[in-house]
Amino acid sequence: MPALTHYLVLSALLFCLGLFAVVTRRNGVAILMGIELMLNAANVNLVAFNKFAAPGAMQGQVFALIVITLAACEAAVGLALVLAAYRSLETVYVDEINVMKW
């Protein structure tokens, strides 16, 4: 029977995978994927706390749903930014996007 700690460890590992992608990837889209992994890890935490720490209130699941909504917003705006950068600078590699004005 997995306890709260199991879920927290899983979420920590998932979070650090996402962190690694954000720190090391050059492609803007791949960085966004890393952020999605980190948000998922946070959601696992929220839902796990909901079940094990405070089962009476629905706060954990409610916040997980809000995070999912905001993740969708973030993906839409972030990918639109990548698309706009690709149009004007013809690159999706964030280390090549180094001019403030074009």
Binding site: T5, L8, V9, A12, L13, F15, C16, L17, L19, F20, V23, T24, R25, R26, N27, A30, D95
Partner: peptide, 24 residues
């Protein structure tokens, strides 16, 4: 696809994982 921070990134991620797991 990878920038020059591969080693540092891995170290940071591993340290973060260690910290989080220890706390959890």
């Amino acid at each position: 696809q990878r920038n020059e921070q591969g080693a540092i990134g891995a170290a940071v991620a591993a340290a973060m994982a260690g910290l989080l797991i220890a706390v959890a």
